[in-house]
Simulated assay, not measured.
Amino acid sequence: MTEPIVDAAPALDFDLKNLPKVSLHDHLDGGLRPATIIELAEAVGHTLPSTDAVALGEWFRESADSGSLVRYLETFDHTIAVMQTKEALVRVAKEFVEDLADDGVVYGEVRWAPEQHLQKGLTLDEVVDAVQEGIDAGVEAVAATGRDIQVGQLITAMRHADRSQEIAELAVRHRENGAVGFDIAGAEDGFPPSRFKDAFTYLAEQHFPATVHAGEAAGLDSIRSALLDGRALRLGHGVRIAEDISVEFEVDPENDGEEAVGMVTLGELAAWVRDRGIALEICPSSNLQTGAIAEFGEGIESHPIDMLYQLGFNVTVNTDNRLMSGVTLTNEFELLVETFDYDLDDLLELTLNAAEASFLSLDEKEALVEYINDAYANLAG
């Protein structure tokens, strides 16, 4: 299968922060405010690299910017350590929602692993309830300012643990209390979705949707397993699907013999992901930090997100971990505009991709899509 790569569109000249956004891949323990971490750490006696909010934020960003997913994940030791009580979970979740709203997010799905928050004696159900209480408080606080936001929980099981069935049942148990989907996260390489096949089968039997981290630290086999064994409706990151795409460069005789992009060929897996509209939860800055796109180049300009988007993949834009990457969703859109010259139509399409890939009901999706289209139409007008 071959497709031509289309040229990018012209750049924008307006503030992106006011645009309505949809966030599908954003970790709760990767989105804390540095000042909050300091206060919570002091309360539980946890030692931090710094007790200055600015310096602590810089430490997280520098530690994450290593090109290693393993080292990137080590930064979570500090955030998880301060998220072990009901009060802390409520506060972190509330602030998480408020920060999303401040960035223009109108719908978000927050993913987190309840099994990592049991050190102080809380049960799995109690921690889910605490996070939902914080989400509800955040939504209410945002509404008090005249804005609206909706946020659902993606209940996550850690790949290196053996609690996937238990966590899957937890997610289904809370489907009427804010849980909208299931995920597996953590060390991807060596822990394929096939290890959790029974849990994914249970979720399918319960008609409960799953998104699976795949195609970040591991390649095409991980994506295959996410689709086959995990029955994934979305791929968390999924950026390495680009490894199943070949690009041929040809000499352009009408341009002084300079190399020009010719045709691209999609492998069977890439074609399946594209043609079935399986959403890619791409996180540009994080992908650069963790080395997920190392095969394609060193800088953001080498990120295959533009190629995937131009070829018709169901690309969505996300932040992954706002604290570690030092970004917001607005920042990520600005980065794409600056790097690939995206225009308003491009940003609208990427946002609608995310809205339609959300785990909302059909009626809720249609209302969200209408809201986003109206907002963009008013801007364009």
Rank of each mutant, 00 (worst) to 15 (best):
M1T: 08
P4L: 07
A9H: 14
A9K: 11
A11T: 15
D13S: 15
D15V: 12
K21M: 00
S23R: 07
L24K: 08
L24N: 04
L28H: 07
G31P: 11
P34V: 01
I37R: 09
E42Y: 14
A43S: 13
L48R: 06
A53R: 07
A53N: 03
V54K: 13
S63F: 08
D65P: 03
V70T: 15
Y72A: 03
D77Q: 15
T79S: 14
T85W: 00
R91I: 12
V92K: 00
A93L: 05
K94L: 12
E95W: 03
F96L: 08
V97T: 03
E98G: 10
D103E: 05
V105G: 01
V105Y: 10
Y107H: 15
E109V: 10
E115P: 03
E115H: 10
H117D: 08
L122I: 01
T123A: 13
D125Y: 09
D129A: 15
V131S: 08
I135Y: 07
D136I: 11
G138Y: 00
A144I: 02
V151F: 02
V151Q: 02
I155P: 05
T156N: 10
M158T: 11
A161C: 13
S164I: 07
S164G: 09
S164W: 04
A168R: 09
A171Y: 06
V172Y: 11
R175I: 08
F182S: 11
F191Q: 09
S194R: 14
R195P: 03
Y202S: 09
A204N: 04
Q206E: 12
F208N: 04
F208S: 01
A210Q: 07
H213E: 02
H213F: 10
G215C: 05
R224K: 13
S225A: 07
S225K: 00
G230A: 05
R240P: 11
A242D: 10
F249K: 03
E250G: 06
D252R: 15
D256V: 10
E259N: 13
V261A: 12
V264P: 06
L266P: 02
L266D: 03
L266E: 02
W272D: 15
D275Q: 11
D275F: 13
L288I: 14
L288H: 13
I293M: 13
G297K: 05
G299I: 08
E301H: 14
H303T: 02
H303A: 02
D306L: 10
N318Q: 09
R322E: 12
M324Q: 12
E332R: 14
E332I: 07
F333I: 14
F333S: 09
D346V: 04
L348R: 12
A357H: 00
E366N: 15
